[in-house]
Nucleic acid binder design. Structure first.
Lengths: 215, 215
DNA sequence: CAGAATATTCAACAGTTGTTGAATAATCAA
DNA sequence: TTGATTATTCAACAACTGTTGAATATTCTG
C-alpha cells in the first residue's frame, strides 16, 4: 500500500494529481504535495521548476495516452461500420468508454487525473488556458464523425449537443458523490458502469432529437 | 459604471462573488476582494468574520430568491397542466428557465453567482459540503414531478438522468466560453437563450429514452 | 446639538507561501 | 576505485496570507 519503490519524481506527480483534483490549483501547497509524496519540498522545484510547471506536468503525463485510446476507439468503430459509417450511439460510445475503463482501473491515479480534467474543464480560468491545446483536435474528429452520422443537421445544433454531452461527462468525471445523497443510496457515483450505461443512450437521444431534420 | 453609492458591505459581496466564481475559494485573497471593492482589507472581516463566512454569505445572498423563482415556475406549470400533470419538457423548462432569466439580467452579479454555483457543484471538496443543504429539497420536488410524468420509470434511471441534466446545466452556468472556440464562432456561450433552447429538448429526449418503459 | 452606535481605516502580528543556493547523498561512467 | 553527474535534503529568504485591536470617521438617536 505504501509508495516506496516508486521513483520520487513520480510520487510527486501522483500526490499533486490527487490533491489538485480534490482542491484545485490554489487549494494545494507544495508542502502538502511533498509531504504526501514523502519527499522534501525542494524536490518538486528541482524536478519540475515552478508550481505552475508541476501542474502542467501532471496534466501532460497522461494526456497522450488518453487521446490515443479514444482515437483508437473511434477508428475501430469506424472500421467496423464500413462506408455507411457508425451510428451516433457508436460514436458516443467510442468517445466515452475509454474514460470508463480508465476510471475502473485499479490504479486510482486515473480517477484523480480525470477528476482534474473535470476541474479544469469547468473552470472559467483554467478551461480556456489548458483544454483547447490538448483536446480540441480529437474532439473535432469526433464531431466530424457525428456530422456524418447526422446528415442535414445544422452545425450549430451539433456543437450545442456536444456542449451538453461534455457537461454530463464532466460532472461524471468530477465524481462528487452528490447523486448518492440525492438518490438516498439508489445510485452510486462510484458505479462508473452504471453512469456510462445511462449517459450514452441519454446523450444519443438528445443528439437525435435536435439534429435529425423533421420533414 | 463605478460602484460608488452602493453600500460597501454589498460591494464586498459583489467583488467576492465575481472573484470566487472565476478563481475558486483558494484562488482569491481578501486583499484582492477588498481592492476590487475599493475598501480596506479589515472591512471584510468586520462585516462577515472569517473568509469562509464571507464565502458562505456570498452563497446565501441569492439562494432563497433563486429557489423561490424556480419553485414558483414548477408550481405554475403544474397548475396550468391540471390533474394530468405537466410533461417532461414542461418540468425541465421550469427547472431551467429561471436560471436563463437570471443570467440575462443586466445585473452581471447573477452571472457570477451562477458560475459560482457551477464551481461548487463540480468540486469534490465543496459540492458535498454546500450543495445539499440549500438545493436538495427543491431538486426533490422536481424529481417527484418527473416521476409522475414518467410513470413506470425506475427510480434509479430517473436519478441518473437528472445527473446528466445537472452536468449539462453546470457547464452552461460555468460559462467558460469553450464552445466559442470549438465551434469557431458558430456558437456563443454568452447566448444563453440558445444554450437553454438546446438544453431543454436535449435532456427531455434523454429522460424519455431512458425512463419510458418499452413494451 | 450631544452622545452613542456603527462603519471604516490603520498598523501590525504570527504563520505560511513558493523559491533558491549551498550542502550532502546516491547513481553512473570509465 | 575514481570522478562526474544526478538526485535529494537542508536552511533560509522575502513576499504574502488571514486576522485582530486600537484609532478614526460616519451615521443614527434622543
Amino acid at each position: 500500500m505504501s509508495n516506496t519503490s516508486v521513483p520520487k519524481r513520480e510520487r510527486i506527480l501522483d500526490a499533486a494529481e490527487a490533491l489538485f483534483a480534490e482542491h484545485g490549483y490554489d487549494g494545494v501547497t507544495l508542502r502538502q504535495i511533498s509531504t504526501q509524496a514523502g519527499v522534501d519540498v525542494a524536490l518538486a522545484s528541482y524536478h519540475f521548476g515552478k508550481k505552475l510547471d508541476l501542474f502542467q506536468a501532471v496534466f501532460d503525463r497522461r494526456a497522450a495516452s488518453l487521446n490515443d485510446s479514444r482515437r483508437e476507439a473511434l477508428h475501430a468503430c469506424q472500421d467496423k461500420a464500413g462506408k455507411r459509417g457508425p451510428t451516433v450511439e457508436q460514436i458516443i460510445e467510442a468517445f466515452l468508454r475509454p474514460l470508463e475503463l480508465a476510471q475502473e482501473t485499479g490504479d486510482e491515479g486515473w480517477r484523480h487525473y480525470l477528476a482534474l480534467i473535470a476541474y479544469i474543464n469547468n473552470s472559467p480560468y483554467w478551461g480556456p488556458r489548458m483544454m483547447s491545446q490538448l483536446f480540441d483536435e480529437l474532439v473535432q474528429e469526433f464531431i466530424e464523425a457525428l456530422k456524418k452520422a447526422l446528415p442535414g443537421a445544422r452545425e450549430e445544433d451539433i456543437y450545442w449537443c456536444y456542449h451538453n454531452l461534455s457537461g454530463a461527462l464532466t460532472l461524471t468525471l468530477a465524481n462528487t458523490g452528490r447523486i448518492d445523497k440525492l438518490s438516498r443510496g439508489k445510485c452510486h457515483s462510484a458505479d462508473f458502469q452504471a453512469a456510462y450505461d445511462h449517459m450514452i443512450p441519454f446523450t444519443a437521444a438528445g443528439f437525435r432529437k435536435l439534429c435529425t431534420r423533421r420533414r
